[in-house]
Simulated assay, not measured.
Amino acid sequence: MSTRTFRITVRGAFDGLTSEQHAELVARAPEHDMLRAEFTAEGHLTYDIAARPFFTFRFLESGEKEEDILDAGARAELAAEAWLAERGYGFKNITSQSQDLSLAPLGKRGRRAAAAALSTG
């Protein structure tokens, strides 16, 4: 059985932040900039709190069956909530979207690489 890679995006909004928490998030914003967004096992947080109260966590998980994506999504939501709760940040409207990369359509470059692998194999 092959390993599947899942990308999970967890979105939500900060809620009820104190002025100190808001200032802390503004100060740490450069390390959570959208231009640095990546999918990681521990989850990568991005936000632009100066513009709007929304945040996004990006998680990278794996599983062996297609159904494993459901558990991966639930774990990602719990991990995002735990990260926020540990820091005392209020939040609301947590949602997630999961993608099984083994089912994702290949782009032009991916199709060329797959065709080349077939012709040499």
Rank of each mutant, 00 (worst) to 15 (best):
P30V: 00
A82S: 12
E24C: 04
A50W: 03
I49M: 03
V10M: 07
E77M: 15
S96W: 13
D68W: 02
G63A: 10
Y47I: 00
D71H: 09
A85R: 09
W83R: 06
T95I: 08
T9F: 11
G73K: 07
H32R: 03
H22S: 07
I8V: 15
F14G: 05
I49D: 05
F59N: 11
A50D: 15
E38T: 04
G16S: 04
S98E: 05
I49E: 06
A80D: 03
R7D: 10
I8A: 14
L84Q: 04
H22V: 00
E86P: 00
A23L: 04
E66L: 08
N93K: 06
A76Y: 14
Y47V: 00
A50S: 14
F55K: 03
E31S: 12
F57M: 06
R52T: 01
R52N: 13
Q99C: 07
R28E: 12
E31F: 10
N93L: 09
L25A: 02
G43P: 07
V10S: 11
T5D: 15
A13I: 00
G90R: 03
R4A: 03
F91E: 02
R52E: 13
D71M: 08
R87I: 00
P53L: 04
R28C: 05
A13N: 10
L45Y: 04
V10K: 06
D100F: 05
H22M: 07
S19H: 13
D33W: 07
S102F: 06
L101M: 08
T46L: 03
I94S: 11
F91V: 01
G43T: 02
T40I: 02
P30W: 06
P53Y: 01
E77R: 11
K65G: 08
N93D: 15
E42H: 14
P30N: 08
D71W: 11
N93G: 10
T18G: 12
F59H: 11
F6E: 05
D33F: 01
D71P: 01
F91R: 03
A23C: 02
L78H: 10
L45E: 06
I49T: 02
E64W: 10
T18Q: 08
D100A: 02
E77P: 00
F55R: 03
T9H: 13
L17A: 05
E38A: 15
Y47M: 02
R7A: 08
M34R: 12
G16P: 02
R52I: 00
A51M: 09
L103N: 06
F91W: 15
S62R: 12
Q99P: 00
E61H: 15
T56K: 12
S62N: 11
I8T: 09
F57R: 05
A23K: 08
T95P: 00
H44F: 15
A72I: 02
T40V: 04
Q99E: 14
F39N: 04
D100H: 04
R58T: 04
F91I: 00
F59C: 08
R11E: 13
A85L: 01
R75P: 09
F59Y: 15
S98C: 14
V26Q: 10
G88M: 05
E31R: 11
E66R: 07
E66W: 05
G12I: 01
V10L: 04
A79D: 14
G73H: 09
L70H: 14
Y47N: 03
R36L: 14
E81H: 04
